[in-house]
């Protein structure tokens, strides 16, 4: 049994979850979530929503990664996994820790964003965008500049008295070979995220382990016509849509009927933090320029006042 904290939740797992930071488990208290090996049904008799490889029925959700692992998530409390024949725990683990846990967080009713996050002063800033938008790379680059990692892939948002907070979800960076080489992070890179994929775990320099208020959320865009580089504020409809479309799994917001939840999160982020577009070239050569631009923006927002 291994213990972890994931997105602010205590987790006890029967398998080692590579890339996550192990911690001492609560001795007696029951964990918030348990990850166990077991049988996973191929289908539900009472399915309410069906996807090609997933199904939702009441408080149960099943998803299969064909040929790798199938998972059954129940009530946001238990994640049961069943590796496909001949598949090692290690190979299944990356899908359990990312896909499986992300869906479980959706199931728990948190607004969950597909974003990375870094600490700036006493707050967190989020970077969202679809797979390949450069979220992890930017968080890693900011880590090199002294901004501790708050989250790498998903950000669970909660509202406290109308203010948006993020539960820390610091884990190892997952970076493609090209990014590791370009940023000279080879010294801290470890095992591949999965065999045959040239994406590797990289140790973050520093991580955050306590919840932080969210100061800003940036939707990443590549600089290409018609978008010129810079930080701009979208109109409020686009701000709401940025939050909605950057749910960790947008399809699940509809499946779980959580649209109002994301609307409220968007409103809170627009009112109490700030929603922006960050448009920049995707090339590594321009990373410093992007980081400088962000630093200027944080200074203008007053985020750096209490830092250091």
């Amino acid at each position: 049994m291994a213990s972890y904290r994931i997105s602010g939740l205590s987790v006890r797992s029967e398998i080692a979850l590579h890339g996550l930071m192990a911690c001492d488990g609560p001795e007696n208290a029951a964990p918030d979530v348990t990850i166990v090996r077991g049988e996973v049904p191929d289908a539900f008799d009472d399915a309410q929503v069906l996807g090609p490889n997933w199904a939702l029925a009441q408080d149960r959700f099943r998803i299969g990664i064909p040929g790798v692992v199938s998972m059954l998530l129940t009530g946001g409390r238990e994640l049961r996994f069943c590796p496909a024949p001949g598949v090692s725990d290690e190979e299944a683990a990356i899908f359990v820790a990312s896909t499986g846990f992300g869906i479980l967080l959706h199931q728990r009713g948190h607004p969950l964003l597909h974003a990375s996050a870094a600490r700036v002063g006493d707050a967190a800033v989020l970077f969202c965008g679809p797979s390949g938008a450069g979220k992890s790379t930017l968080a890693a680059a900011l880590g090199e500049r002294g901004h501790a990692l708050v989250a790498d892939d998903f950000c669970a948002i909660s509202l406290r008295e109308g203010r948006p907070w993020i539960a820390p979800d610091a884990r190892k960076h997952k970076l493609w070979r090209q990014a590791i080489d370009a940023m000279a992070l080879g010294g801290r890179s470890g095992a591949p995220v999965r065999n045959r994929i040239e994406k590797y775990f990289v140790d973050p320099r520093e991580i955050v382990e306590t919840p932080l208020p969210v100061a800003a959320i940036y939707a990443l865009r590549e600089q290409r016509p018609p978008h010129s580089p810079g930080i701009t504020a979208p109109n409020i409809v686009d701000a709401a849509l940025i939050v909605r479309t950057n749910a960790y799994r947008p399809r699940l917001v509809r499946a779980f009927g959580q649209q109002p939840l994301y609307f409220k999160a968007a409103a809170a982020l627009a009112q109490r933090a700030g929603v922006y577009y960050l448009t920049r070239p995707l090339s590594f050569a321009d990373m410093d320029k992007t980081a400088d631009r962000l630093a200027d923006h944080w200074a203008s927002l007053g985020l750096l006042d209490r830092a250091a």
Binding site: N53, P130, G132, R194, I197
Partner: peptide, 27 residues
Amino acid sequence: REWFDSSMLFASGLLTYDECDRLRPMV
């Protein structure tokens, strides 16, 4: 990639290209 990831609910980036191709008809 968005069609794949949002229908299948997991990141196509974790699969090899051939593994993706096996699942693309479902998408």
